Amino acid sequence: MAFVPYGITPPIITPFREDGSVDYETLAMMSKRLVENGVHGLFPMGTTGEFYAVNDEEFVKILTTVKDAVAGMTTRKGRPIQLFAGCNHITTRGVIHLIHLVEQVGGYDAVSVLTPMFISQTQDELYTYYKTIADSTDMPVILYNNKPKTNVTIAPETVAQLARDCANIVAVKDSTGDMTNSEEYLRLTRDQRDHFNVLMGRDTLIFAALMYGATGAIASCANVAPRITADIYDKWEDGDLAGALEAQYKLAPLRIATNMGTFPQTIKEALVMQGLPVGKCLDPIQELNADQKAKLRKVLEDMDLL
């Protein structure tokens, strides 16, 4: 049976000090805190983790820090904590280089690969991109569609073809916010469910995606509200659909608040408000203004997160 990514996995933030260096001690603390509060996996070097801001040495040390921090920890049902590593680059060879670094670190269950940024690929080019990457490794590969950030989408038909042709492409994370797109991923790959699944990447749609057949979500807001976010999955898994939906409703205002400022600054400011010394995003991203900070604080207070 192929690896099945499931549950709630936060794309963990990367804490930076004022001088721009990575704060590995805070990263380790954050990793443990998230697992203690119920998440099912951790995903360093995603979009929320400012993957674009680190060099190879930092990349390796971040992955090692997260892995070591949660070694031996399990979910509420005693399952191992899943670990995904973001491997994102404009070029195919750049992604493959990062995957080789992940393989050297060891201990990671899958790699997540975003569509290339800046360049605008055809679907044929995207197919070849992902097929070449999958063929370069034995690791499970998660496709990552974040059209709002890259202006590139992986069409459902392309995802379905990749699922058929590549046994180690095990999932797609859909951050488009388009539920019809997610539904089409699920519908067109349902005959590949022995090895391929769908993960929701928009935090307001986790419950809906689970009901459609997704196996989990990669949820940025779980950095700030891990227990609330994990409740969506845990209650759904336990058959408490009303409880899962209520947790989804409770989480929604935080996800909507992340539209303030430049992503993922709102996530970091919320963590700072909670007393966690994660710093701000690297320049040129700036802090929220005073009015935005007041709105964010009110959201956190209403969610009982302060």
Rank of each mutant, 00 (worst) to 15 (best):
T180I: 15
P226S: 14
E287M: 13
A134F: 03
Q248K: 07
H97F: 05
M1G: 13
D138V: 12
V272L: 15
N223I: 09
Q286I: 14
F3L: 12
P80I: 03
P140V: 01
A222C: 08
L83R: 02
L210P: 00
I62K: 02
G201P: 01
G216T: 10
D135W: 10
K298L: 07
K77L: 09
I81Y: 01
L271R: 00
F3K: 04
G243H: 03
L101N: 06
E36C: 08
L114P: 01
T262G: 09
V141F: 05
K295I: 05
M303T: 08
I99L: 08
A247L: 03
L143S: 07
V111N: 08
Y144D: 02
I232L: 04
Y24T: 13
Y130D: 00
K173S: 08
L254W: 06
I142S: 02
N151F: 15
L251E: 01
N146H: 08
Q192T: 07
L288S: 07
M29A: 15
I169D: 02
G239R: 12
E125A: 14
D165A: 10
T65S: 10
F263D: 02
I12R: 02
K149F: 11
V22G: 01
R17K: 15
E57W: 07
R255S: 12
R17C: 08
N168R: 03
V4Y: 09
K147M: 09
L188A: 10
S182E: 06
T266S: 11
G46L: 04
D174G: 06
H97P: 03
G243Y: 04
V95W: 00
P156F: 03
F196A: 05
R255F: 12
Q292T: 07
V141T: 04
E157W: 08
L245A: 11
P253W: 06
M179N: 12
K173Y: 04
L63F: 05
L306H: 09
D302V: 12
E57S: 14
D234N: 13
A167G: 02
M45K: 04
E184A: 13
M117P: 05
D234T: 08
I218C: 10
G106S: 14
T132R: 10
A71M: 13
N151H: 12
Y212A: 15
F196V: 06
K293Q: 15
D234F: 00
R190Y: 09
K61I: 03
Y127R: 00
E301I: 12
A209E: 00
K173R: 11
N88G: 07
I62T: 03
T153C: 08
A160S: 13
A2Q: 09
N151Q: 15
C87H: 03
D238S: 15
S136T: 11
E246K: 14
N197L: 04
S21I: 09
E287T: 15
L282F: 05
Q274I: 05
G38M: 14
E103I: 10
L188N: 10
I99S: 01
D203K: 00
P10F: 06
M1K: 12
R193V: 02
G20C: 10
R79W: 14
T204P: 02
T74C: 09
C221L: 05
T258A: 13
L241M: 14
E25Y: 11
V141H: 02
K149C: 09
E25H: 13
G94A: 09
M30C: 15
Q161P: 01
Y233R: 02
T180R: 14
V66I: 10
L296I: 09
R164G: 04
